[in-house]
Computed example of a mutant assay.
Amino acid sequence: MRMFRWAGLALALLCGIARASMGLSELPATAEDGPVTVYYPSSDTSQPVRRGRFLLDVAAEGRAVPGNGRLVVISHGSGGSPWVHADLARDLVEAGFIVAMPQHRADNYVDGSDPGPDSWTIRPAEVSRAIDAMGRDPRFAPMLRLDKVGVFGMSAGGHTALSLAGGRWSPARFMRHCDEHIAEDFQSCVGLITRLTGGPLDGLKKWVALRVIHHRFDDDTPRIAADPRIAAAVAGVPAAADFDMNSLARPAVPLGLVTAEQDRWLIPRFHADRVLAVCQTCEHIADLPAGGHGALLSPHPPGLDGLVGDLLNDPPVFDRADVTVVNRKIAAFFERHLLP
Results as ranks from 00 to 15, higher is better:
294 G>T: 05
188 S>F: 08
139 R>N: 08
58 V>G: 02
39 Y>N: 08
82 P>C: 12
263 D>A: 11
74 I>S: 04
323 V>H: 08
309 G>N: 09
204 L>V: 13
282 C>Y: 02
228 P>A: 10
176 R>K: 12
242 D>P: 04
313 N>H: 08
192 L>G: 03
195 R>L: 08
186 F>W: 01
261 E>A: 15
340 P>A: 14
278 V>M: 10
236 G>Y: 00
312 L>V: 10
268 P>R: 01
124 P>I: 09
30 T>R: 12
304 L>F: 04
200 P>H: 07
300 H>K: 12
147 D>K: 01
61 E>Y: 02
203 G>C: 00
189 C>F: 00
207 W>Q: 15
266 L>E: 10
228 P>H: 03
41 P>F: 10
129 R>L: 10
87 D>R: 14
111 D>T: 03
140 F>I: 07
306 G>M: 12
93 V>M: 03
255 L>C: 07
283 E>I: 13
120 W>H: 11
78 S>N: 11
124 P>L: 09
315 P>K: 11
150 G>R: 03
80 G>A: 11
52 G>E: 06
101 M>Q: 08
248 L>W: 00
173 R>W: 03
84 V>D: 14
128 S>N: 01
25 S>V: 04
340 P>K: 13
275 V>N: 00
42 S>W: 07
153 G>I: 06
98 I>C: 00
251 P>K: 04
215 H>E: 15
61 E>T: 02
102 P>R: 08
101 M>F: 00
220 D>N: 14
339 L>D: 14
251 P>V: 08
237 V>A: 13
3 M>C: 08
18 A>F: 09
278 V>G: 11
240 A>Q: 04
93 V>H: 02
20 A>R: 01
330 I>E: 07
158 G>S: 07
325 V>Q: 10
22 M>P: 11
159 H>K: 01
154 M>W: 14
271 H>G: 03
110 V>S: 11
179 D>F: 03
10 A>Y: 03
28 P>F: 10
283 E>F: 03
47 Q>V: 12
95 A>G: 06
110 V>Y: 06
251 P>E: 08
121 T>M: 12
260 A>I: 07
179 D>L: 12
284 H>Q: 15
287 D>S: 15
166 G>A: 05
295 A>F: 05
142 P>S: 10
208 V>W: 06
289 P>K: 13
82 P>H: 12
271 H>F: 02
53 R>L: 13
83 W>M: 13
153 G>R: 02
135 G>S: 13
216 R>H: 14
34 G>P: 06
189 C>H: 04
172 A>L: 12
2 R>K: 14
53 R>Y: 07
205 K>C: 02
166 G>T: 05
338 L>P: 08
218 D>P: 05
88 L>Q: 04
231 A>I: 00
126 E>V: 11
73 V>T: 02
17 I>G: 04
157 G>T: 06
